[in-house]
């Protein structure tokens, strides 16, 4: 201990204090602050970049999930649309068939009615014609027969035989 006190040099102590404090202050200004700041900035940068990458990854995942969901929805919608379209088509065809059938029946009925009417008309016409013809024959016969009494009766009888209705 005595040796230590004897060895102690005030000059060296004072110089060491001055030089060391000076060194701390100078290094603080020119070295430690810029170095620590740069390191901090870099670490922050790395951390941010990692965070961003993670976020981007999550977003990407979300996007993919969204895409898939949308695709699924779209598919489902398309299926529904297609189904609807098919149903509609089938409905339309069925309707059209029905309509056509009704229309056809109507046409057929009308045609039959017309045919019937025409037939009736033709029959009536024929009847008229026959009547007129009969009358004119009858008139002629009557005129010829009327000259000969026997003949007249015979004619009338023949005529009547001929005419069948």
């Amino acid at each position: 201990m005595e040796k230590l006190i004897e060895q102690f040099s005030l000059g060296l102590f004072v110089w060491q204090l001055i030089l060391f404090i000076g060194l701390v202050l100078l290094l603080k200004k020119f070295a430690w602050k810029p170095i620590l700041n740069a390191v901090n900035e870099r670490e922050e940068g790395i951390k941010n970049a990692l965070d961003e990458a993670e976020n981007a990854r999550k977003e990407m995942q979300n996007l993919t999930a969204d895409n898939e969901r949308i695709l699924k929805e779209a598919r489902a919608e398309r299926d529904i649309l297609l189904k609807e379209a098919r149903e509609m088509k089938e409905g339309m065809i069925a309707d059209a068939k029905e309509e056509a059938k009704i229309q056809a029946t109507k046409v057929i009925e009308q045609a039959q009615a017309t045919i019937q009417a025409e037939k009736q008309a033709a029959i009536a016409e024929i009847k008229n014609q026959v009547a007129e013809l009969s009358l004119s024959i009858a008139e002629k016969v009557v005129r010829g027969e009327l000259s000969d009494k026997a003949k007249q009766t015979k004619l009338v009888e023949d005529m009547l035989k001929e005419v069948t209705l």
Binding site: L19, L23, K33, P34, A38
Partner: peptide, 16 residues
């Protein structure tokens, strides 16, 4: 002290 000042201020400059 000079050596340290030289070494570390140079290092600090490199970070720029």
């Amino acid at each position: 002290g000079l050596l340290m000042l030289f070494m570390f201020s140079k290092m600090a400059k490199n970070y720029k």
